[in-house]
C-alpha cells in the first residue's frame, strides 16, 4: 500500500481495459458488447488524464479525453440505431448469428 502515484492509476485502467475486452469477446448480446466498448473508452480516458496530471504536460490530455467522451456519445447513438434495426430484422441481437444488415 504505497503512496498513490501514477502506477496505481495505470494499473486500475489496465484492469478496466481487460474487463472491457473480455466483455467484447465473450458477450453475445450486442448491447453487452457496447458496454464493454464503453469500459475500454473509460480506461483510455483514465490513462490520458493520469499522464496529463503526473507528467506536468498542461491541459492537453484533458482535451483529448473530452474528444473521446464526445466520440463515445456519437458512437453510442449510432450503434443503438443499428441495434434497433437488427432487432427489427432478426427479432434478436446475438452478434454471432447476425450476418446481414437488412433482408
Amino acid at each position: 500500500m504505497a503512496h498513490v502515484g501514477l502506477t496505481h492509476f495505470l494499473i486500475l485502467s489496465a484492469i478496466l481495459f481487460s474487463l472491457g475486452i473480455y466483455a467484447i469477446v465473450v458477450r453475445k448480446n450486442a448491447i453487452m458488447v457496447m458496454m464493454g466498448i464503453e469500459l475500454v473508452l473509460n480506461s483510455a480516458n483514465i490513462n490520458f488524464i493520469a499522464f496529463s496530471h503526473f507528467g506536468n504536460y498542461g491541459i492537453s490530455g484533458q482535451i483529448v479525453s473530452l474528444v473521446v467522451i464526445i466520440l463515445a456519445a456519437a458512437e453510442a447513438a449510432v450503434a443503438l440505431a443499428i441495434v434497433l434495426n437488427l432487432f427489427k430484422t432478426y427479432s434478436h441481437i446475438n452478434v454471432d448469428e447476425v450476418n446481414k444488415l437488412k433482408e
Binding site: I31, M34, E38, A72, A73, A76, L80, L84, F87, I93
Partner: peptide
C-alpha cells in the same frame, strides 16, 4: 449513454 443503453435493452 447509460439512458441510451437502457432504452436499447428495453426496446430489444
Amino acid at each position: 449513454i447509460l439512458i441510451l443503453l437502457l432504452f436499447g435493452i428495453m426496446l430489444t
